[in-house]
Write a protein that binds this DNA or RNA. Structure first.
Lengths: 204, 204
DNA sequence: GTCTATATCTTGATAGAC
DNA sequence: GTCTATCAAGATATAGAC
């Protein structure tokens, strides 16, 4: 029976929000604990590995949360093309609601650390992989051949990340909305190629 | 007739490379001048506005360089789908040659500053806009209706940026190669929708 | 235009009282 | 487990000799 566990989570939550708005490097431990309303020492009490350890936990925690979201949005049985397009339109709404902070909690960090912090880089890679695997499983369950499903999932996630980037820079949801149509074309193309090459191209 | 102009450019070049590998926040002025082999004072002599001014120059300069590249890759007359797909395959090669440093010189900076440095954010937005406008002009010249051409260009650029992100995180060119196929589907879809809605869908 | 020295601030991290 | 004080190193930026 644990008596604590509250401040630790507040630190993780604060770090998640700050990383998403300012990135990893521009966010200091002091700012994190100040935002969390926690004493400075608590940061190193809960994360003896320092900022890198905290960063990894943020990446993996928010990565897991988004993995659940994917499971909710892409329910087997729903049409592939429609489900994909609607996910993008929902993302456009989220982008606006966040006032153009990053809807993806790990994107900025991923680019920042890719060539500099190997541990963090691996964490972001594993999170991206979990997302694409989940989406690929849905596409495969909907009839796409395994390889096509995987490539399609990777492309759709990439398109969403890039659309967030352009949308944030322009402070405009237009890019994400344009990407919604493009995502539909990608999936539709995959369905066509799947039925031609491999097999059960029918989806709904 | 100017007698100098060399150290200034070395500073810009060094900053461009460092931003692309480490991002904006993690790169210090001292590291920049050290890499450039320039005295510290020169940085503020040439960029009285400090790091932000240097950052803007880096973004605009490398943005202009990539704008030229787009012009070279997308020559009117070439088939839209093939030109787009081959550009992605070339980008995959570049990603590997750079040892998975960011092939896009402004992507990391764009995400870092989007919600924090308004001047820099605007610079990245204008660069992205110049790229999508150039690509859209090519698509339009190839027969796509204006609006479709614009949306397609935005989506293709976004897909490329996102594919770079996933590829860097995984240290694998697979995502960019998958995106090459997806980009072809996007453009093919745009051609179809263009010929249905608006008009001259024929490209080659 | 070059270069050095310095001022001021903030960073990540640690030590130790409570 | 909480909280404060402090450290050394880094940051951005400036001043001023040459």
């Amino acid at each position: 029976m644990r008596t604590t566990g509250d401040t630790r989570q507040r630190i993780v939550s604060a770090a998640t929000e700050l990383f998403r708005r300012q990135g990893y490097s521009a966010t200091g431990m002091k700012q994190i604990v100040a935002t969390a309303g926690a004493p400075y020492g608590s940061a190193y009490h809960f994360f003896p590995g320092g900022k890198a350890q905290l960063g990894e936990e943020v990446v993996r925690t928010s990565g897991a949360a988004y993995l659940e979201l994917i499971g909710e949005l892409f329910v087997p049985g729903r049409d592939l093309v429609d489900a994909t397009g609607e996910a993008f339109l929902g993302a456009a709404g989220t982008l606006r609601e966040l006032d153009f902070a990053d809807p993806c909690p790990i994107a900025t960090v991923a680019l920042e650390v890719a060539s500099t912090h190997e541990g963090l880089r691996l964490a972001t890679a594993e999170v991206f992989d979990s997302w694409t695997a989940a989406l690929a499983a849905y596409y495969a369950a909907s009839g796409l051949p395994e390889g096509v499903a995987r490539e399609t999932a990777v492309s759709v996630i990439a398109l969403l990340e890039g659309a967030f980037m352009l949308g944030r820079a322009a402070r405009d949801t237009g890019p994400v909305e344009a990407a919604a149509k493009a995502a539909r074309w990608i999936v539709r193309g995959a369905v066509l190629s799947g039925s031609a090459e491999g097999g059960a191209g029918r989806s709904a």
